[in-house]
Nucleic acid binder design. Sequence first.
DNA 1: TAAATATTTGACTGAGTGGTACACAAACCC
DNA 2: GGGTTTGTGTACCACTCAGTCAAATATTTA
Lengths: 196, 196
Amino acid sequence: MSTNGRPREFKDEAVIDAAMEVFWEKGYEASSTQELCERTGLGKGSLYNAFGSKHELFEQVLRRYSQIGLDRSIEILGRPIPVKERLRALFIWAIDMDFADPNHRGCLAVNVSMERAGRDPMVERTFGEYLQTLEEHIIAAIEDGIQSGEISHKHSAFQLAQLFLSSYYGLRVLNSATLNRDRALQIVESTLDVMF
Amino acid sequence: MSTNGRPREFKDEAVIDAAMEVFWEKGYEASSTQELCERTGLGKGSLYNAFGSKHELFEQVLRRYSQIGLDRSIEILGRPIPVKERLRALFIWAIDMDFADPNHRGCLAVNVSMERAGRDPMVERTFGEYLQTLEEHIIAAIEDGIQSGEISHKHSAFQLAQLFLSSYYGLRVLNSATLNRDRALQIVESTLDVMF
DNA sequence: TAAATATTTGACTGAGTGGTACACAAACCC
DNA sequence: GGGTTTGTGTACCACTCAGTCAAATATTTA
């Protein structure tokens, strides 16, 4: 094609990961380009040359975050254990994430979806696509459980998946305010207990 | 006490309501003092004289929002109808709020709790207190239902209340991304169906 | 009317914002 | 080596941010 120029001194992936930390801690608005530069190690010129704008960098961060979360969720939902245990594992993984960081920064995707609800089509689209894919996998897992007889067919897989998803995200909202791991685990048990 | 000076030309309540609209649309960070002044009709001096800082004004907004929501929730939970219908009414009221505004701004308290999760003790405290009070009233309503025989005592009121609350807030997260009223109503029916 | 007090106004501050311009550096191809 | 291309570092841009302040104004009490 064309001759090469000076090679980049960084890997895009590493920069996106570093930027992710900033957006995760501060949210979108409160993350300044200056801090983004400091934490990624890039100068402004490099950062803007490579990513175009704060918002485009943010888009890549959100896509990567969603992809990682989705990969992990799908892995958990595919484990060779009872479906109820897979759903419990998904809950517990989320709780571990919520309480892993000392300043309980929660879930980046949920945080920014709420922060920018109704004003950022990119965020709505990205989070919406993520949700749809996650839902499909949850429905599939529950359907497996119904077919194998593990789960009663009193409710449809679709109904149960919806209940799971709303409870799953509600839990994370509650975690941001109540900050109590044991309480979160109680909610998980209640939810699974009522669902099955 | 002391002699009066020039009287205020505004009612605090009206200013807080106007500021609420701004924070609701934009979130905390993205609401500028300038827009706050324009929409409240106050000059900067008056606003700072009366409320001290953007953050203190925000605190009053959040308190007022929570109080209004709590009053309404308690009213709904006290209606002389079956408990299941009260919980359904609470769900539907929330959905109506989420979809009332054309740019679906959602729930102010949830939005800012997520936006400022882990970085704003005032928000955590205010939302936490609100949640605790709401939970108490939901538990009381469900206990009524259990005692009257409307609800089976297969699960405790505490368990069911937790499931309701997580599903309730999860629904609002999902609403911010999927933007589909019918879908939200389906989730409500699924949740109530599985719960009872 | 005059003193005392509280509120309003809007210009102003210093720091910080996202983003740009451009000189310079480092690679490739001939 | 030149010529081209791309990346980097930094000074700089116009603008916005939250917050301040002194002067003007409106009220009550004396």
